[in-house]
Design a protein around this nucleic acid. Sequence first.
DNA 1: CGAATAGAAACTGTATCTGTTACATATTTC
DNA 2: GAAATATGTAACAGATACAGTTTCTATTCG
Lengths: 140, 140
Amino acid sequence: MARNCRFAVAVHITALLATMEGQPCTSEWIAGSVNTNPVVVRRLLSALAKAGLVRSTRGSAGGSVLARPADRISLLDIHRAVDEDEEPALHNQPPNPACPVGRNIQSVLVRVMERADAARDAVLSTTLLSEVVGALKVEG
Amino acid sequence: MARNCRFAVAVHITALLATMEGQPCTSEWIAGSVNTNPVVVRRLLSALAKAGLVRSTRGSAGGSVLARPADRISLLDIHRAVDEDEEPALHNQPPNPACPVGRNIQSVLVRVMERADAARDAVLSTTLLSEVVGALKVEG
DNA sequence: CGAATAGAAACTGTATCTGTTACATATTTC
DNA sequence: GAAATATGTAACAGATACAGTTTCTATTCG
């Protein structure tokens, strides 16, 4: 998982939209709950909109709403929307091709990391935004 | 997974040690295969030694060897040795406690991320260094 | 002793990220 | 049409993390 907090804030934002049930929310109001700057919220909303998860409208009485029900949005959808193209973290400089290990280590590592990432993604894909919202209510 | 390349390089280093079968390797020689600076290698070797995965000796004819057979070292062992205490990436500023979502989102997210990380770790824990070395030989 | 090696501290350049300001664009309301 | 209210986006600053490098100390072998 990336070391930034985009995923956490994006889940926060979409959970807020889910609890507002179609009522458009402004980036300033959302920023009040996240405790950050409205532009940070808008950047994430923009990424979520490109992925088709939210819709935003400008102008007075504008704001953002979920583009589909919370039980049809998985945390993997959100993760891919805001942390796109996470490539495996390999060597900065290409290893020495004259060494049997250096020549092949990257392709072997990529295969392992793809399996590891797939296992993590499987958990995220079976966790729905609606479940997160439900868990929030239980906490009270 | 972290965005640095410590894990990739650490697997590279330990795979080299495994193929050398007990012959001590110097950080300079290892750096030649990894294509980096010997100090970068020593930093990782130091972390691996603290985790009990390698042993290093100083002085002339010194170097590093694996502390136990490659079929008793998992990639999770290596990952934990060099990328210690990876906490889940949450909000930078604490969310607004006056908001029902802001008040509880972090505890819910931590639980989800722990499940996701556990799934990834399960893959890494069942992948042994000896398997990586075997895959390297197949590639040729 | 002298050569070779690990260990560790300190510093640099680069990249990424969050937060911020500023402004253009779009939409509603009056 | 003008004003108010939003989003969209570019540009910039400060903080942090990381890889790489230099330099020095400590240790070991011959």
